[in-house]
């Protein structure tokens, strides 16, 4: 394993992140703060407690997840696309790095950015006495696993996109709408029965539910189901990305 090479990919990407700290960190923290203010206080003040928790506490894991998902996806998709666009992806292609090392390097950076984004939001939550963790292991699992899932999706889109416009396709048509209706702001019981499929058929619902379980101990579905689904998604997306790299899709001429 070329650990120095892998770590260099992480160093390079962290340096790239630090060129735009407002865009990378401050924007999601402000967005989370607004969500907490509006849904926690303005709207939340009119909603009774859910499972013994204030509405603000109920919403926070979902807000956290939405920002982790965005951070992960934006990190890997923009890193790959930017490197392809300026052709400096060739620096890694001509060096003795394996495909696995390149993928792990990208994912490590994704996790760094997601964790830093999450930390900031947790601190904001602490200010409002809304940050709780009942299972550190579970919390770490959901943060890292969801980061990797959306990091892998970002790599696929970064390899496929031929313009900056195409980079946003998945966010606009898939990530944002599904995350909004994925149980971030409501329990399944709050929906009319005929609309509950929106949650049950939505992978975001299981991620939100998993993270909420680790933070509040509040589960709407068995944790095992969410963990299983997440592991299957990780395996499928990881295999797809490895296959794309080994075929040189979007990388080699």
């Amino acid at each position: 394993m070329n650990w120095i090479g892998l770590f260099t990919i992480v160093r390079r990407e962290i340096s790239r992140m630090m060129r735009v700290p407002i865009q990378v960190f401050v924007a999601p923290w402000i967005s989370a703060l607004l969500f907490i203010f509006i849904f926690g206080f303005v709207v939340g003040g009119r909603i009774a407690s859910i499972g013994g928790h204030r509405y603000l506490e109920f919403v926070l894991p979902g807000v956290l997840l939405m920002n982790i998902v965005n951070a992960a996806f934006l990190q890997s998709s923009s890193a790959i696309y930017f490197a392809r666009f300026l052709h400096f992806i060739e620096e890694t292609l001509v060096s003795p790095l394996s495909y696995v090392e390149m993928i792990l390097g990208s994912l490590s950076t994704v996790v760094v950015r997601s964790v830093l984004t999450a930390l900031g939001i947790m601190i904001i939550g602490l200010v409002f006495d809304a940050t709780h963790i009942v299972s550190i292991l579970g919390f770490l699992f959901w943060v890292v696993a969801t980061s990797c899932i959306f990091g892998l999706l970002g790599i696929i889109i970064g390899l496929w996109a031929k313009s900056f416009e195409q980079l946003n396709v998945l966010t606009v048509f898939f990530i944002t709408p599904l995350s909004m209706v994925g149980g971030v702001f409501n329990t399944v019981a709050m929906l009319p029965p005929w609309l509950r499929f929106l949650d049950y058929a939505n992978p975001f619902f299981y991620f939100t539910n998993g993270l909420r379980g680790a933070m509040l101990g509040l589960d709407e579905t068995p944790q095992g189901l969410g963990v299983g689904l997440t592991l299957v998604l990780l395996a499928v997306l990881g295999g797809t990305v490895w296959r794309l790299y080994s075929k040189g899709y979007g990388l080699r001429e």
Partner: peptide, 29 residues
């Protein structure tokens, strides 16, 4: 192999020092 390509295939926002150092890193130095 060391390659000096025809096109400037670099991260244009990086410094010369970073560009050379990162390449050494990819090679496991």
């Amino acid at each position: 192999v060391g390659l000096c390509p025809q096109e400037f295939n670099v991260d244009v926002f990086a410094t010369p020092r970073q560009i050379v150092d990162w390449m050494g890193g990819y090679f496991g130095m």
